[in-house]
Write a protein that binds this DNA or RNA. Structure first.
Lengths: 113, 113
DNA sequence: CGTTTATATGAATCATAATTCATATATATT
DNA sequence: AATATATATGAATTATGATTCATATAAACG
């Protein structure tokens, strides 16, 4: 397991829309599974699976209280990383990837390179 | 396309071991496809495919010189992000995810929860 | 021009990951 | 104990992505 592989595993884990939304929610504070499920409007089992994946990458940890299980980020640095990443994307116009790509394809068809 | 989806797409793109290694190499400076191919010891077409994926996320850009095509990062902030991420992973012992997971599985089998 | 060198592309295959569904577990409540 | 509530799990299915292979393109060079 190289550093690049470890790091890639981590990035892939966060790089899933639902998991990223979970992380962004948890960045604001602890949430139980039910809250996450209803806020994200996804199947409960799906949220559970994603939480498991996040836990296996040490991104979140749990705390049980009665029947409920509360999750939170293992470290505030994670939230900061997401924010930094977001800022970078804005700087680079990395959002709206789609439109950019469509332009590219159009150029290629009309003869560049 | 929500912000989370855009950001996830970006993270997923970098979250592939070979692509991450490409990014780490390009963080040190421009490289042509041939160099990347031989340094990473992968098929040329594979490197091309990965470069295309990185380009589609605006992570790299190209410059042609004679037959060769040189790639570099679109922005130095990308390199910084990778470094920050690496630092965070070390802080959290997120490297060696695997061993941690094996322990967990062992615990689970022997009856926890 | 024909050949070599460098890179890109598309289709096919293979691997991995996401999602759903049914069900299990665990706590609380009556 | 029986039931309700909250979460987790595993197997099955489906979708997505990585890799390979064959081939195309494009520049340089004889």
């Amino acid at each position: 397991m190289t550093m690049a592989e470890d790091q890639a595993r981590f990035l892939r884990c966060v790089g899933e829309p639902t998991r990223l939304e979970i992380v962004r929610l948890l960045a604001k504070g602890e949430r139980c599974v039910g809250e996450l499920t209803s806020v994200l409007n996804k199947e409960q089992s799906l949220i559970s699976h994603h939480l498991k994946a996040l836990k296996e990458c040490n991104i979140v940890k749990e705390r049980q209280e009665a029947q409920k299980v509360y999750y939170k980020l293992t470290n505030a640095g994670l939230a900061r990383l997401i924010v930094d990443c977001e800022a970078l994307m804005k700087e680079l116009s990395l959002c709206k990837c789609q439109e950019v790509n469509y332009e590219r394809k159009a150029n290629q068809k009309s003869g560049k390179r």
